[in-house]
Design a protein around this nucleic acid. Structure first.
Lengths: 347, 347
DNA sequence: ATGAAAGCGCTAACAA
DNA sequence: TTGTTAGCGCTTTCAT
């Protein structure tokens, strides 16, 4: 309680005294114009103006137990997340809805590397999380704090809502396009996950996508061992870093779980004179805008902004005590870019 | 005060009772491990764990008067701001520093179209604002709330710190490059401002930049009337919308105050078969990544991320009662892209 | 229409 | 080392 300000803060009591009314009256003057006489109200507002009184929002929020703020829980450092166009698009969607409701948005990075710590300290009415990393460590604390939660790209634990595409089907589509074009030696640059074992009912998107890959492979008479597996965060750097090993692995195509990884890979290839897609094909995931230097990236499109909009809407539904509307599924599609070459006839 | 939860919230009092100690002890156990016996502390923490107790962050913040949160005040809707790569870069810088300090970041859009309203309700320890629109309406309320404030791209009112490039010099450089290449009929797509009258000591960046343009023109023996003035927000749409009028105005070059406006213009030109820079040259401002379809944009570079970093640092300096370090100036430079054609020898 | 007063849950000065 | 207690500023129930 360090208030270094010279003159003390003007409080509701000051206004009440000065205006010769009770604190209640002052409170009503601001929050319930109907419950007070017009005369009195005008007088109070006048005094408030004169004394530069502004109701302390901290006290107000504490007292009412409502924050008028939603939290957006990120899996990585702000710096990193804000560098990911996919996340930015999601935030645009969140932002539009949040603002519509007169709410504010607090972005919450892991605090001291602990997501739990961050959630404990978040003064928000509800939480939107992004990325599978989040789900587990968070849900416990969220439950304790009885805080509404909607996940994006999270797991299907049946407990909490998660907005997703059908990741299994999307991954299946992604790899099928690759196989259809004759590729047989394929690298996959995956996102971080505890295990790369494919499980369609896995809690995270990585497991679900691996299951999709597996199914696509099986349909082509292949097994998972046809894949060279690499792993990295959803960053440009991860794509760049993995590039040397991938390019040496003798594959004809790289499949990534994130466009931004693909961009890192493409930039590395460009810097090293490796031609795309002649030397190696690349297929991404997300469909975000790149820098265009290699033409359009072949990728899986998922409507990021819409995910944000839907997540926010669902969260407000819960906040308003309504039944969350509709199944949290958005659609995906394959985007034919210029980075996936058909090599089926050139054995 | 609507608490619809079935079981009542576990409070510090519950823990105190259950552990047979006072609230003080519990508080100390969490916040001042040194001021309490190891034995007692362990016991308290155990009980807390058992009862799923988490100190209410709202109450904590209210009581301590510290929010551990910084606010980022935006001039436009979240949706719009998040679509501006320049703002995103600034946020990356803010985010890095904010997280370093264990703080959170609340992005604050104008609430019900009122920035003042938004600031009144913001529960933050300090504010970073972006864009000249903000300065005026906000400073009064900020003063009343005695809230530290650092502006980015704001005005120099001498009262509050603003992180800027030397906008007058940067604009001078921008237009000089254009004039040097022989352009004489030039359009300027400006940002919104109360007036386009150039004043180097203007409160906003538009005035300062106009002053830079004026100086550049004078050095070329021209007056301000050599410029066709257009005005629009810092959005892709504004560039697109202004394109028809600009392309019909008979100018050989467009100078914008924001890259994203330039992108909108370029996309319109592409859609209408107008070749850049053959039919018309374009010079932007900011140097953010575009979609690359027209090669690199000629522009003025300003270090957006660094602005964010610096603003956040300055704000924390103030928050910590230190003298804000160094002058809030970052440097700019001209970026030679492919959209500015030299027409000096082709009369 | 207005007021008195009891919280909200936590912190911290002061006392023991 | 630990406890008592008085706030923090506002909201809101219940009287009047």
């Amino acid at each position: 309680m360090t208030n270094t300000t010279i003159r003390k803060r003007v409080t509701i009591a000051d206004i009440a005294r000065e205006a010769g009314v009770s604190k209640t009256a002052v409170s009503f003057a601001f929050n319930a114009p109907g419950r007070i006489g017009d005369e009195t109200r005008r007088k109070i507002l006048l005094v408030a103006e004169k004394l530069n009184y502004i109701p302390d929002p901290t006290a107000r929020k504490f007292s009412r137990g409502v924050q008028m703020t939603l939290g957006f829980l990120l899996p990585q450092a702000l710096d990193v997340c804000f560098a990911n166009p996919y996340i930015i698009e999601v935030m645009r969607g969140l932002g539009a809805v949040v603002q519509e409701h007169g709410y504010m948005l607090t972005v919450i990075p892991p605090l001291n590397d602990s997501i739990g710590e961050a959630v404990k300290n978040a003064t928000v009415d509800g939480l939107v999380t992004m990325g599978y990393l989040v789900a587990d460590g968070v849900s416990g604390i969220v439950d304790v704090r009885a805080m509404p939660l909607v996940m994006i790209d999270g797991g299907n634990d049946g407990q909490h809502i998660s907005v997703n595409i059908d990741d299994e089907a999307a991954a299946h589509l992604q790899l099928s396009q690759v196989l259809k074009r004759g590729h047989r030696r394929i690298a996959v640059l995956s996102l971080p996950a505890p295990s790369l074992t494919p499980k369609a009912n896995d809690k995270g998107i990585v497991g679900r996508r691996m299951a999709g890959y597996k199914r696509a492979l099986e349909e082509a008479g292949l097994g998972l061992d046809a894949l060279r597996l690499f792993q990295g965060e959803a960053t440009w750097q991860a794509g760049w870093d993995a590039a040397p090993a991938i390019s040496l692995s003798g594959v004809t195509c790289l499949v990534t779980m994130s466009d931004i990884q693909a961009f890192g890979f493409l930039d590395w290839c460009q810097a090293h004179g490796i031609r795309i897609p002649d030397s190696i094909s690349v297929v991404g995931f997300d469909d975000v805008k790149g820098n265009g230097a290699y033409g359009r990236l072949s990728t899986i499109r998922q409507p990021a902004r819409e995910k944000g909009v839907m997540a926010a809407r669902l969260l407000f539904d819960i906040l308003h005590g309504q039944e969350p509307a509709g199944p949290p599924l958005v659609r995906h599609s394959f985007v034919e870019g210029g980075t996936l070459k058909d090599i089926s006839d050139s054995i």
